[in-house]
Computed example of a mutant assay.
Amino acid sequence: MGLGPLEIGLIILAILLLFGYKKLPDASRSLGRSLRIFKGEMKGMKDDDVRSKDAVSTTPVRGEIVPPPAPSGDPNAQLQEEARLAELRAADLRARADQARSSDSSR
């Protein structure tokens, strides 16, 4: 149930009749530009995701100095400290997201 040469020819003929042979190069050029822009935006979004994940794991939250975890000692205390730091990071990310949303909506 594929397209045969007759069906493809009819589709091309219909496109030529609808748009005309003079407008087809402009239409294909604008379609190519749109696809390039779309691909660039998608790549930028992926890069931003990777950068934000790296930033979360390496940067201190709200300018505070993050102490290194205790060498050995009580594992329960280490887990609680890691949980506290994760909550601070999450709160900071929520605040940044809210700030970005409010600045986007004001435009």
Rank of each mutant, 00 (worst) to 15 (best):
D47K: 14
L35S: 02
S52V: 05
V61K: 02
P60D: 10
M42W: 09
S72Q: 03
P69S: 02
G32R: 12
Y21Q: 07
L85E: 08
S105M: 11
N76L: 06
V61A: 11
E41R: 14
G73H: 00
S102F: 09
L85V: 05
I8C: 03
V56H: 06
P25S: 03
S103P: 00
E87C: 01
R29T: 04
S34D: 07
L31D: 03
E7C: 02
S72L: 06
A97P: 00
L79D: 13
S103H: 11
E41H: 14
D104I: 10
A90G: 06
A27R: 15
R107D: 09
D49K: 14
K22D: 13
S52N: 13
E87V: 04
L88W: 01
D98M: 05
G40M: 07
A77E: 14
A14H: 05
K39I: 07
D48N: 14
S30L: 08
L17V: 09
P75Y: 06
R33I: 12
D26Y: 12
I12M: 05
I8E: 05
R33V: 09
L6P: 01
R84Y: 03
L18Q: 14
A100G: 03
E81Q: 13
E41G: 11
S103M: 07
S28M: 06
A90T: 12
D48A: 15
I37R: 11
P60K: 08
N76E: 07
R84A: 15
R84H: 07
R33N: 07
D98Q: 10
P67L: 12
A90N: 13
A14S: 10
R89V: 02
Q80G: 03
I11M: 03
S72E: 03
L3I: 03
L88I: 00
S57H: 06
L79E: 12
L18V: 12
A97E: 06
D54F: 11
R29P: 01
A83Q: 12
Q78Y: 00
G63N: 05
L24I: 15
E82L: 15
F19D: 05
R36I: 12
P71F: 04
A90S: 14
V66A: 12
D54N: 14
K46Y: 15
V66C: 12
A70R: 08
L31R: 08
D49E: 15
I15H: 00
R62Y: 02
R36M: 09
Q80W: 02
A90D: 14
G73F: 01
T58V: 13
S106R: 11
S28Y: 08
